[in-house]
């Protein structure tokens, strides 16, 4: 007989964004993920045995999709990857019709990535199972923020009062929004470094300090988080050239010297080497980019476990 958890970590059956999570909830998820890291590389019991997890990726993804797939499989779930390229979505079916169709097949967890902000929330209204937002437009990417927090906590031992500089294309970045929310909730000092054309309106009111100079922005930072320059979303020419961008905002060894000597360098991937980050830094001793990928699986396992707990409670 399964043990019932009287206090589920997640109060809701979905994980749509960091915005809905309290500090306690985030910390509890991190603790659970922390405990999972040790054996996240092998099959863990069979918590999700007999459960069906559907990965619905409307946008191309390598690491997030495979991370969710591996996390699900290591928990014993049956994982189905919907191939959008071959499906009826290509034939003009709307997101809601797809959701209703999938819902009729009674999955337990839906993992969705979509190019439109709010797509995950829309889906969650129409299905009976748990929905995990794996990135919706420029809105949120909660599991990325959780794995980033876990990476920071494991390398630095804490998050509170650390100086974290998030650098680059904030405007198009869901990772930035989720990280601003989670790092602020966890008590870090968040800095934003970017040219003004890559910043959303009202960024100053998001509890961050804004810098337009990289050297000033990463001065004494404990963590430098680089973001990918999202060429595919750049509808207009927001920057004149990648050459100029790298000169002023690309992270190289020289600029990194401004940060604290033990500063760690993060990147959610995929990287544009030579655009926002130089190879010498990306592969250098301060880089924790591979750790982030590893933490990704642990965090996603923890999230799925927590969602099933809260499902049982409903």
């Amino acid at each position: 007989m399964k043990k019932r958890n009287p206090f589920p970590i997640l109060p809701y059956p979905h994980l749509l964004g960091i915005k809905d999570l309290s500090k306690t909830t985030i910390l509890a998820l991190l603790d659970r993920a922390d405990a999972t890291v040790a054996f996240s590389h092998k099959h863990k019991k069979s918590l999700l045995h007999g459960k069906t997890q559907v990965n619905l990726f409307f946008e191309a993804s390598t690491r997030t999709q495979s991370s969710f797939e591996i996390a699900g499989k290591r928990l014993g779930a049956n994982v189905i990857n919907m191939l959008i390229g071959n499906s009826s979505i290509k034939k003009g079916e709307t997101l809601i019709d797809t959701a209703i169709t999938l819902n009729a097949m009674s999955p337990d967890i839906l993992v969705i990535r979509h190019s439109s902000a709010g797509a995950a929330a829309l889906l969650a209204q129409k299905v009976d199972c748990s929905v995990i937002n794996a990135g919706d437009g420029a809105h949120e990417h909660p599991t990325q923020a959780l794995l980033d927090a876990l990476t920071i906590r494991r390398t630095k031992g804490k998050i509170e009062n650390l100086i974290v500089a998030i650098c680059g294309d904030i405007l198009h970045s869901r990772v930035a929004r989720s990280n601003i929310l989670s790092l602020n909730t966890l008590g870090a000092q968040v800095r934003i470094v970017a040219p003004s054309t890559l910043l959303p309106t009202g960024i100053e009111d998001m509890s961050v300090t804004v810098f337009h100079s990289m050297t000033k922005g990463i001065q004494d930072a404990d963590v430098v988080m680089m973001l990918r320059l999202q060429h595919e979303r750049m509808i207009q020419a927001l920057i004149p050239s990648t050459r100029e961008y790298f000169h002023f905002y690309g992270l190289d060894r020289e600029k990194l010297k401004k940060a604290k000597p033990d500063c760690i360098v993060m990147h959610p991937g995929p990287m544009n080497r030579g655009v926002e980050i130089s190879s010498s830094v990306a592969d250098g001793p301060q880089s924790v980019i591979q750790t982030q990928v590893k933490m990704g699986i642990a965090v996603r396992m923890a999230v799925m476990e927590a969602l099933l707990d809260s499902q049982r409670e409903r």
């Binding site: 929004r177 998001m206 509808i235």
Partner: peptide
């Protein structure tokens, strides 16, 4: 162009393009 709601903090949090 591409804007779907009023430009401002709310649009920025929602990840939606703003119309100034």
């Amino acid at each position: 162009a591409h804007g779907v709601m009023n430009a401002g903090l709310m649009a920025s949090w929602l990840g939606l393009s703003g119309i100034p």
